[in-house]
Each structure stands twice: as C-alpha cells, then as structure tokens.
Design a protein around this nucleic acid. Structure first.
Length: 580
RNA sequence: GGGUCUGUAGCUCAGUCGGAUAGAGCAACGGCCUUCUAAGCCGUUUGUCGGGGGUUCAAAUCCCUCCAGGCUCGCCA
C-alpha cells in the first residue's frame, strides 16, 4: 500500500488542496522522528498561524481517530510526524515479497505499450572494448526494468556495419590479411590490419581511393566484397556473442546501418516535399538556425547519405515495424547535438511522436593516459577485463574459501559482477577513467559485496534448514512460526531489522523511479543500501538465536532480503552466488 | 566564441521537482572471528556543498552571474 497517499488523505487543511498536502508529506529525515513527516511551514501564511500551532492542532484532530496502520502522531516544532504501526507495516511488506517473489516490484503500468531500446550498437570488425560497457549494461538493465513494469520491450543492437571503413578493411585484408590468423585471433587480428592501414595511408594516400572503390563494390553487391564483409561480420558476431553471454545480455534485433541503406530515399523525398531541405555549399541540409542549432546534414555534396539520414530512416522504420510508444537511444553524450537535431527534424516533419524519442546519454570512458583510439590500437578489450576480474576472484577464493566447489563458476559470477556493478553504480552521465585497480576492487560498495551478502543470506537459510527459491518462499513464514503469532513488532524490535523492512518496502518505488529517470544506478545503489542494512542487522541481531518465534521472524526477514537482492540482481544483470 | 553537461570530504561518488544535524565507499588509524561466510561489522578523523548575488519561514537543491573542466558546433559515425 502507498503510505504517503494514505497519510495525506488523513490531513485536512483549509485553503490547501489535497495535492499540496500530498506533495508536502515526506519520509522522515530520521527514524527517531517517525516514519513520515508533514512540514507545516508552508501552510502558515494561509492559515495565519505559526507552524508549530498548526502541527499541534492537526495532531489533536488526527489522533482522535487513528487508522490501524498508524501507531502515533506527534507534533514536533513545525513538523507533524507519523509513526507507522510496525507490525502492520512489516506484515504488509513481507506479504508483498512472499506472495510475489520474482514478481515483487513488477506492475502492469506499461501493458499494451512498446518501447524500443537502442543500445550497445557495436561496430563490425572493431574491438568490443570498455567504451561499450556502459551502453551495453545500461541498455540491458533498462530493457529489464521496462519489461518488469509491463512494457513490451524491443532491444536493438544497431550494428555499425556500413561505411568507407569497410572498404579500408578489405583493402588492408587484400594487402596483408591472413584468413587463418583472423579466424584464430578474431577482432584483434582485424584491428591489427586496420591500424596498419591507417599507418600506411599516411605515406600512401592512394590507399584511400582503393578503399572507396571497395566500399562501392559492397554497395553494388560485388560478390567478393560481400563475401569478405560477411566473413568479417561472422568473425565479429561470434566473438562478441561470447562477451554478451558473459554479461547476460541479449537482443531482439540486430538491424544495423546497412539494413537502412535502402530505406533512406523515401525520407529524403518527404523532406524535399515538405520543403525542409535546402542546399548549402552543395550539401542538402535542414536549416535549424531558428531553433539555435547548427543545420542537420542530410546529403553530402556528392549526394551520399549521412549519419542523420540513416537515423531518420531508422526512426520511421521502427515506428512502423514496432509501433513504439517510446524509443530510447542509449548513446554517449558526445552525440547530444546529433540527437537533438534529428528529433527536431522529425518534429518539423509534423510527427508528434518526436516527443517519444529519447536520448539516454551516458558519460565517456577514458584511459588513465588519455582517450582510447581504435586507429591507434590504444584500448582495453572488454573480454580482457572480464578475464582479469575472474582471475582475481579465483585468487581470492583460493585464499578465503579453498574448499569451495564450483570455484570457476563463482569466480566468473563475481568477476563479471564486479565489472557490471562498476558500470551501473554511478549516475550514467558521469565520466569514467578506467583503471584495473578500481574495477578489480572487491571491497566496500562493489558487486562482490552484494554477492557476498547474498551468500551470507543463503548460508543462514541453509543452517536454518530452509531452501529458498521464488516458488517456495511463500510457505516459509508458516513453517517457522509457532502458529500463534505472525510477524509482529517484537520480532523486529531491533532498529536494524525495522530499517531493513522499510528498505525492502521501497523496492517497487525504486524500480518505477529508475524507469522514469532511465537510471539503472538507482537500483544498484538501492541494493547497496539494502546489503549494508542487512549486514548491520546480521551483526546486531543474531538470526538463529532467541525464542522460536523471534528466530522464525528473523529467518523470514533474511529470506525476504535474499529474494529482493536476487530480484534486483536480475535487473542489473549480476548473478547471485550461493557460496563464495 | 555559441550550445550543453559536470563541479559536494585527500580520492570515487550519493543526496538536487526546497524541509529537521550534508551521507556512503576507498584511503589512514584503532577495535571485533569460543563457530549464523571477517569479500564483513563498529569506532576515530576530514566539508567556504566551485565563487558571488537573489527568491524563501527554510537553499547542496530554485533563479541570475562569474570561475574551472569535459563534450560538441557541415559534408566521419
């Protein structure tokens, strides 16, 4: 139940409408005050009374007829503080978690609505590096969040599989390529000849003309060119798929740039017909000066299409094919202007759904010694990062849990978990300087910390003789209580236990907020808060101790924590670990 | 120069549609394993919330302005 709304409904203030009251009710700054508060200062003017007096008067009114979910109401200075009935509240939260299990926090808010999410969008024949980590895990998390809230989600990997770069690659391959080497070393071998091309090009500019020729051959459907391009694409997809599997990421569509190469002409025609296209320096542009933006380039002076042209074709195709209610682009903020321009052009073309196009921008990754560059071969491969993280996890396991079975699996989960967590803990707009020291830190606010907490829960539950899975969680409370009591305030008397219950109750709201703000870090951060709270509880209140009913309640609470953490793990793509 | 984002503890960051003493983690130092996983917990220490104005009963949060940094500004994507 929504306690803020329930509480707001109790409060009647002359001259203030219900909405004012509802938006003023807040979560209490400190549990010592209560659970929720109404600061009365803003009503002082209309009521012509000091805030403290208003609070006191409201306190008298409301106290006379308290609903069962409120234990007490206090006036403190200008604040009116509400303390919930802990038993009622805890039961309400626990029941929600046990009844819904894996569906806790789910809703049908998005029923009948479709959202397209364009993310990861790697380039064929180029390294899958740490720069791609952000878009990949943020996009995947957003897909899961929207799905959980009832939306139909289409995850799209908009492949970079079009452009002169492929002409360059074929040229390089014809000159120095070795098919066996490429089959063996994959993207690294392709990167090598690509780098070499750029080096040799400086001394031999004629190579560029050769590259252009090869790209034209691809476009014209020349069989050799297509065969080679297909080969590069196969090599790429085979290799990146392994990394996607490790990250737990999948897509509904891989339609990339080349897919739209024959879908641009109608857009160009429509722009012309709507008199939006003007010619400037030989190029065709949409003038956006009226909106304080540089022009959007549609056709080069040689008539070739551009990035924006393809993005427009993509938008109209997706609208037609999926009928999206929202289309998200999880793309780095370097392209802020590009998307602003393209969306503006859609608006100028007269399509109201321009409002549903959203650029979910995220910060850039750089190396400690500067920016990454494919051409210079200066980059960190994502698969290397995952490998090193696993290796480190394996080392720690050997130290701390030498008897662990399935150490390999645990290390893979923990290492990958650390990497994913690192990309999802901060607000997505923040820049990131990559360092192995940082990403391989497993102490404090990290993925392994969350997994460790999960393993701790699991261990307690095993000792308690409870095997937890979502479908079985429902019976636990019954089997552990002595039959005469259900979850009540005595069981959560310790401050830590109650704080934990409050946090668990917040999860559904966190998911909604993460969706609204396109911000998976809210979920990650919430999991950290919950894990911290559980670990404090674990130390403060010995779980498998005390009388039968207190013990039962604590075990139930532990099961609830594990359930919610696993639930959150599914969202952010971190794998739970039973032992580590 | 225009646009835009960022600026909070030594470092990395939460908190920002205004609310009660500004919070975590890392790093440092000191405690806690006679048994629910010490990848943990507790304690100590550190703040001109970039500067200055303004609005308000109340500002890290809203407005103005300045400063610093990132990104971006026609034929790459």
């Amino acid at each position: 139940m929504d306690f803020i709304n329930e509480i707001a409904a109790l409060i009647k203030i002359d001259g203030a409408d219900d909405r004012d009251v509802r938006t003023t009710v807040t979560v209490a700054a400190d549990s010592a005050f209560g659970d929720y508060s109404l600061p009365c200062f803003r009503f002082a003017k209309t009521l012509k009374k000091p805030p403290a007096e208003i609070a006191a008067a409201l306190q008298r009114e409301i106290s006379s007829d308290l609903p069962e979910f409120i234990e007490r109401v206090d006036a403190a200075g200008g604040y009116l503080n509400f303390t919930l009935d802990k038993s009622f509240f805890a039961r309400s939260v626990m029941n929600g978690i046990f009844e819904k299990g894996a569906d806790y926090g789910a809703s049908d808010d998005g029923a009948g609505r479709t959202v397209c999410i364009d993310f990861s969008s790697i380039n064929i024949a180029k390294p899958f590096h740490i720069g791609h980590l952000g878009t990949t895990v943020i996009g995947a998390a957003l897909c899961r969040i929207f799905k959980k809230l009832g939306y139909n989600v289409v995850g799209i990997n908009h492949l970079g599989d079009f452009g002169t770069q492929f002409g360059k690659l074929i040229t390089a391959y014809k000159l120095w390529g070795d098919r066996d080497d490429i089959e063996r070393r994959g993207l690294r071998a392709l990167a090598d000849i690509y780098v070499r091309f750029h080096k040799e090009e400086e001394e031999n500019p004629a190579l560029v003309a050769v590259a252009r020729e090869w790209f034209l051959k691809i476009e014209r459907g020349d069989s050799e060119a297509l065969e080679l391009f297909g080969f590069f694409k196969d090599v790429t997809m085979k290799e990146v798929e392994k990394t996607y599997v490790r990250l737990g990421v999948s897509f509904d569509s891989y339609a990339g740039e080349s897919f739209y190469s024959d879908k641009m002409q109608p857009v160009i025609d429509e722009l012309r017909q709507k008199k939006l296209l003007t010619v400037s320096d030989g190029a065709s542009i949409v003038d956006l000066s009226e909106y304080g933006m540089p022009p959007c380039l549609i056709l080069r002076n040689d008539g070739a299409s551009l990035y924006a042209t393809r993005d427009l074709a993509t938008i109209f195709y997706r609208k037609k094919a999926y009928g999206f209610d929202k289309c998200l682009y999880v793309v780095a903020y370097q392209q802020n202007l590009h998307f602003k321009q393209v969306f503006k052009v859609v608006e100028l073309m007269g399509y109201p759904f321009y409002k549903d196009l959203i650029h979910v921008a995220y910060g850039m990754v750089s190396l400690e010694d500067g920016a990454m560059s494919t051409r210079k071969g200066n980059m960190v491969y994502l698969s290397d990062v995952l490998d090193k993280a696993k290796e480190k996890a394996l080392k720690i396991i050997a130290e701390k849990s030498p008897d662990l079975k399935d150490a390999e699996d645990a290390a893979e989960a923990v290492g990958t978990g650390a990497v994913i967590f690192g990309a999802l803990i901060n607000n997505r707009i923040k820049d990131n300087v990559f360092s192995y020291d940082k990403i391989l830190n497993f102490d404090g606010e990290t993925g392994p910390y969350l997994q460790y907490t999960c393993a701790r829960c699991n261990s307690v539950l095993e000792k308690a003789g409870v095997r937890i899975s979502y479908d079985k969680i429902r019976g636990i409370e019954a089997s552990f209580s002595d039959g005469t009591e259900s979850f009540n305030s005595r069981h959560i008397a310790g401050g830590e236990a109650y704080e934990l219950v409050k946090l668990l109750g917040k999860y559904p709201e966190i998911l909604r907020s993460a969706m609204k703000n396109y911000e998976p870090s809210l979920v990650t951060r919430y999991l950290v808060d919950t894990a911290q709270s559980f670990n404090r509880f674990y130390i403060a209140d010995k779980i498998l101790d005390g009388d039968v009913s207190v013990k039962a309640a604590r075990v139930v609470l532990t099961a609830a924590v594990m359930s919610v953490i696993k639930n959150g793990f599914e969202i952010i793509g971190v794998k739970p670990v039973e032992r580590m």
